Simulated scan of single mutants.
Amino acid sequence: MRIFLSFVAIQFILGTVAIADGFERPIPQAQSATAEFWYALACVALVIAMIAVQRLVARR
């Protein structure tokens, strides 16, 4: 038990001495041409799917 308590005490002392770095905001990366192509393709596919659903619902 003494070993455990001494270990906890050492960890507490060493933990309080450490100084945290300040928060650095992440810098967003630019989108690649490939990502823009796939995003545009997904948008077109979504519009086509929405038109298909609208026509299917309008028939009933």
Rank of each mutant, 00 (worst) to 15 (best):
F37H: 15
W38M: 12
V47C: 08
A30C: 08
F12Q: 14
M1W: 09
R59L: 04
I19L: 10
V17E: 04
E36C: 02
E36M: 10
E24H: 03
C43N: 05
R59Q: 11
Q31K: 09
F37K: 15
C43M: 02
V44L: 07
V47Q: 11
A45F: 01
E24M: 06
P26S: 06
A40M: 04
R2L: 07
I13K: 15
A35W: 00
A18G: 06
I3W: 15
V47T: 07
A40Y: 01
A40P: 02
D21M: 05
S32N: 03
I10E: 06
A20W: 01
A35K: 02
G15F: 07
S6G: 13
L46S: 13
S32V: 01
I27A: 14
A30L: 11
A33C: 04
V8Q: 15
W38N: 14
A52I: 00
R25G: 07
I10K: 11
A42V: 01
A40V: 01
I10V: 03
S6K: 12
Q11I: 03
W38Q: 13
F12G: 11
Y39C: 03
I48N: 08
T16W: 06
A30Q: 15
I10Q: 08
F12W: 12
D21T: 02
V44D: 11
V57Q: 09
A45Y: 00
G22E: 15
V53L: 15
I10W: 06
V57I: 08
T34Q: 08
A42R: 06
A33Q: 08
R2P: 00
A49I: 03
A9I: 05
F37S: 14
L41I: 01
S32I: 01
T34Y: 05
I51P: 04
I48K: 12
A30K: 14
I51R: 04
A35E: 06
I27S: 13
S6M: 12
A35D: 05
Q11E: 11
R2M: 06
R2G: 04
I27D: 14
E36H: 03
A45C: 02
R2C: 04
S6A: 13
A49C: 10
M1K: 10
A49G: 14
M50D: 07
G22S: 15
I48Q: 12
F4R: 11
E36Q: 10
A58M: 02
A30G: 11
P26N: 05
V8G: 13
F37M: 15
A58N: 02
C43S: 05
M50S: 07
I10D: 10
M1H: 11
P28S: 13
R55E: 05
L41Q: 03
I48M: 12
A52H: 01
E36D: 06
P26V: 03
V53N: 11
S6D: 14
F4P: 02
R25K: 10
V8D: 15
R2V: 00
I48H: 06
A40H: 02
A30T: 09
V44A: 10
G15E: 09
C43P: 00
A42W: 05
A58D: 05
M1N: 12
T16L: 06
A40G: 03
F4S: 14
A9H: 07
E36P: 00
R25C: 07
P26Q: 06
V47H: 07
W38L: 12
F4C: 12
L46I: 05
A33T: 02
A42E: 10
T34I: 02
T16K: 06
D21P: 05
R59V: 01
M1I: 07
I27R: 12
A35G: 04
